[in-house]
Amino acid sequence: MQLKLDLQFFAGEKTEKATPKKRLDERKKGKVAKSQDINTAVLLLFCFIGLFVFGGYILKHMTGFYQKSFTEFIHWNVTEVSVQQVFTSATIEAAKMLAPIMLIAIVAGVASNLMQIGFLFTAEPLKFDLKKIDPIQGAKRIFSIRALVELLKSLFKIVFIGTITFTVIWIFKDDMLMTAFTNAENALGFFGRVTGIMGIAAIIALLFLSVFDYSYQRYDFEKNMKMSKQDIKDEYKNVEGDPLIKSKIKEKQRQMATRRMMSEVPNADVVITNPTHYAVAIKYDETKASAPYILAKGTDKTALKIKEIAKANHVITVENIPLARGLHSAAEIGDVIPEEFFKAVAEVLAYVYRLEKKV
């Protein structure tokens, strides 16, 4: 009894790698190994590049809008129509300024996901599931080991990125103090450069951390995807079918094929036997084939049945041990006999035709 329980325990232990079918099923549900840190790092990198490339374009539209505001809009009377026109104009200008960055952000988001998991579209995660609003299940997720790991990761990222940005500020602290003695344009230019340096440093740090995060996500995904030996057996049964049912289906198919084969025996010209273990029924019809072909064949009980049907339908039976064995192993039902048997079969058929003429 104890041994049986131990075997059941080990059979249920998840020690096996996930099968391709399970991976495909989980992928359809949207469950894949993915690091959000890679998405964040790539998104920030592309957006910073976009700001450097389109910075002049954005500045031009921004200053143009300010100029129009303080030279044209400022003289308008405050009415419902004028306020609406100002807000409409501001919205259009903001859309023009942000459009390149938004487009770059969309491309970056798609690219980072394609880089990790390839193309995947599924609505499965959007389906309503009562388990998602189950407070007990929610509490389990909140206080799980994975949630604790994610919390520690987030705290580490905050400290790591904060340390890097503070270091950049500390390096340029003297220059920052000196901006009090420069004009506004130079001060803004300096803070823009420092912000750019902090951004690039933070992006590099995030890319560095994302490598480790992706490795962890892959490890955790593979761990959760593991299957027990019983799971693999159950999956095989679902895919291939229950072995018992499958064997019964095959047996039924064999019986149907045998019945079809037996129904062709009365049409044979001759049945060649060995005489007890093999039987091969042959037909020669030049309108269907250029050479004699096999209508039926079998061994033991099937051979005996073929001979019985042949006898009942007055089909001549010829005993030829080597020819019967050779034809049985060399050709399948419906096949033309191989060339090396032409002469022997022709002699048998000639003999049969002579007997039929005598009759």
Rank of each mutant, 00 (worst) to 15 (best):
V271F: 00
A289T: 07
L126N: 13
V270P: 09
V239Q: 07
T317C: 15
A18E: 13
D335M: 02
K34G: 10
D234L: 03
M97T: 04
P292T: 01
E26N: 09
Y293S: 03
F52E: 12
P322G: 14
I49H: 05
L59D: 14
G196R: 00
F208Y: 04
I169G: 13
Q67F: 10
H314Y: 09
S82Q: 11
D213Y: 01
I197M: 05
V53Q: 11
K157W: 07
Y284L: 01
Q255H: 04
T302E: 01
Y66C: 12
T71G: 12
F166K: 01
A331L: 00
I333T: 00
Q255A: 08
A94P: 08
W76M: 05
K173W: 10
D37T: 03
I204A: 15
F181A: 10
V345S: 06
M225A: 08
A123G: 15
I74K: 05
G298K: 00
T167E: 13
F52I: 01
I245H: 08
F70Q: 05
K173R: 10
A205Y: 03
E308G: 01
F87L: 06
H277E: 05
I161N: 13
R354K: 12
A312W: 00
P338Q: 04
E16H: 06
M256R: 01
M102F: 13
F128H: 08
W76S: 08
K68I: 04
S228K: 03
L51D: 08
A90W: 01
A291M: 04
V348G: 11
Y219R: 03
K343T: 09
V352W: 01
E80S: 13
A324T: 02
F9N: 15
G189D: 13
D25A: 11
E150H: 07
H75S: 13
Y57Q: 09
D129K: 04
Q137F: 12
M256S: 12
